[in-house]
Amino acid sequence: MQSRIFRVFAGIIAVLWLSGCVSTPQSREVIGEYKHPSPGSTALTSRVLLDSVPFFPQEAYQCGPAALATVLQAAQVSVTPDALVSQVYVPARQGSLQIEMLAAARRHDRIAHTLPPDLESVLAQVQAGKPVLVMQNLGLSWYPQWHYAVVVGYDLAQEELTLRSGLVRDYRVRLPVFERTWQRAGHWAVVLLAPGELPEDGREDAYVNSVNDFAQSAADTELASAYEAGLRRWPQSRLLGMALANLNYAQGDLKAARTLYLHVTQVAPDYAAAHNNLAQTLLDLGEYEAARTHARLAVGLGGSFSATYEKTLDAIEKRIGER
């Protein structure tokens, strides 16, 4: 009898041990890297606390507006949770949707940048002085209890994170516990960038993505400064080059657009879209022969937008024929 109880008990322990160890690989990795840094890797500072990040104790269910106001104020936007309630809170769901949170941040002139689904990126942003908006599922996957919080610090030696969460200003949580709740909410983590600021995750394409979403509500000058900052960091990025050139083109600055499109065709000679847009710009500038050269290159390379390339070439041939 006793041995059976013991066996059941051992089984429970084994399950707990397995789930505790196996299901939080990111925490293990971060902590392991801290204890035994692999050569050549850029180590995180062992302890960071962004104490100046404001705190708004949340009212019932309204963690969305409170967490959003926290990161917006930390990003120098003066806004209160109450002012955000109408923008993000959905009374029927007693909560806020992620997509609404991102849209509301953009409405306040900040680029909402979603981080890759890894803990290290979150910690790197905190180390760089940026609080990170996160979503957690504090319940179970089949009985979810969604919650928004803001990561404001961490301590690798203590294996802890510090959050602005609910009614607690400095809520300290064990890294693996956080990872599990965060994992159940799809690893959702967002930083807010002022136009001209860059994220720490080093993914240029994801950055263009975030800025492009921002484009719907942003002024052209803000957009330009966001793309320019990106290009200073990643001068070889063809997507960033195209984005800024397209913006120049839309603003009617054809010469700036031409210079940039040309730069992109040099960085990425087989990027058909760059040849096409350059050809169109050259056509608008009256440089027909050069326009035709690039339009032909675009048509020859083909790809997803080959119909557009053929239209551009047709327009150029027509214009040359009319002369």
């Binding site: 394409d205 263009v208 993505n209 492009n212 484009a215 997507l239 195209m242 984005a243 397209n246 913006l247 083109y249 879209a273 096409n276 847009n277 169109q280 710009t281 056509l283 608008d284 997803s304 937008f305 557009t308 239209k311 551009t312 327009a315």
Partner: peptide, 18 residues
């Protein structure tokens, strides 16, 4: 309004490729 490939299109293409 010319036939340039828009940033929206390029971003979507890049995302699908990745």
């Amino acid at each position: 309004m010319a036939d340039i490939v828009s940033t929206d299109q390029l971003v979507a293409e890049q995302r699908a490729d990745a």
